[in-house]
């Protein structure tokens, strides 16, 4: 890989100060280092933030939990409070990658995972995300694994994270440190962006901003939850389609619903229409099917990924059913 300067930061000020336009923060490195080896990412400097003190899970003033950005995915997903109160998040996180990768991967890094689009990874191929202006190889190429929602002519890639799908369903908030020393909050669904004509930008983070924490709202889906991930082998594969479903059911009526899909868009795809449809309704199979149909009718698949529409519908219904029928 290309040589780079390594800077070990002991605190956030050192990290922010060291940042330059061609720097990257180094967390677990599970995505970044691979991409550097593939010559896709080419930072001049890596600022190691593993010693930064964002490794705790604490209670927040909304009655929920706050997850430190530098905590590993394993520690987060296996944390007793996460398992008990946010089992949807835990389930999604544990379905991702492999144990070794989860041991290294940080929460902040997970939110910034880059696409698995093969055109992005192969530097001899066109890719607007990797090399703006070079074209999108997938658009008229192999796109069976690509987006069916929200894509543009510039980019049809999908977001690969499982954790993000669950966070979109749960409705989290992300806290970031800005380079001027102040911090700001980003509603989770505003963190990632659709490709438009700037697919090189995956998120709305500004240069040098550092994710420090993920705030979870008060637990709502600890009884009825399911993360369904459809993939070619039973483990260690990115989703063809995934669905995070959380329900709150009181007296036979759905009082709260969190639904998001993975593998279908450039961002974790929040199923707002289905959520709206289901709120206040009974958790029946008819309603689940209607909600799925309502959401999927706007899908615009390519010939090779038309299957995702049917698969997506079935997945939404199944995830909702499993969530509802879960033994409490």
């Amino acid at each position: 890989m290309r040589p780079f300067k390594y800077t070990g930061a002991q605190n956030k000020d050192q990290a922010l100060q060291a940042f330059t336009a061609t720097s990257h923060y180094l967390g677990g490195g599970t995505n970044l280092v691979d991409l550097m080896k593939e010559d896709v990412e080419r930072p001049d400097q890596l600022i190691d933030i593993n010693n930064l003190d964002y490794k705790k899970i604490t209670s927040n003033d909304k009655g929920g939990l706050t997850l430190g950005a530098m905590l590993s995915n394993s520690e987060t997903a296996n944390h007793p409070e996460v398992r008990t109160n946010y089992p949807l998040l835990s389930m999604a996180m544990l379905s991702a990658a492999t144990a070794q990768i989860r041991n290294m991967a940080s929460n902040g890094g997970n939110l910034l995972q880059r696409t698995r689009c093969p055109y992005f990874f192969e530097v001899s191929m066109p890719c607007n995300k990797r090399e703006p202006g070079s074209g999108c190889g997938a658009l008229n190429g192999m796109n069976a694994l690509h987006a069916i929602f929200g894509y543009s002519d510039s980019c049809i890639a999908t977001n690969p994270s499982d954790m993000c799908v669950a966070l979109a369903a749960i409705g989290a908030t992300v806290e970031v440190q800005q380079t001027d020393g102040s911090s700001r909050m980003i509603v989770f669904t505003d963190l990632h962006r659709l490709p438009g004509d700037r697919p090189e930008k995956d998120t709305t983070l500004m240069q040098g901003e550092l994710i420090t924490a993920i705030h979870l709202p008060k637990p709502e889906f600890s009884d009825h939850y399911y993360y369904l991930k459809i993939r070619e082998r039973s483990s260690y594969a990115f989703a063809l389609v995934s669905v995070a479903a959380g329900l709150q059911v009181k007296s036979g009526v759905i009082t709260k619903v969190g639904l998001a899909m993975g593998g279908v868009a450039h961002i974790p795809w929040k199923l707002t229409k289905a959520e709206g449809f289901l709120a206040g309704k009974k958790p029946t199979s008819e309603n689940f099917k209607a909600a799925a149909a309502l959401e999927m009718k706007d899908a615009k698949p390519f010939e090779a990924n038309t299957y995702k529409v049917e698969m997506g519908k079935n997945a939404i219904v199944r995830a909702l059913t499993q969530a509802y029928e879960r033994e409490v």
């Binding site: 180094l26 490195g29 280092v33 290294m104």
Partner: peptide, 11 residues
Amino acid sequence: AVRSCQLPISA
């Protein structure tokens, strides 16, 4: 258990 191919010596 972690993967040593992914771990820069500096880290």
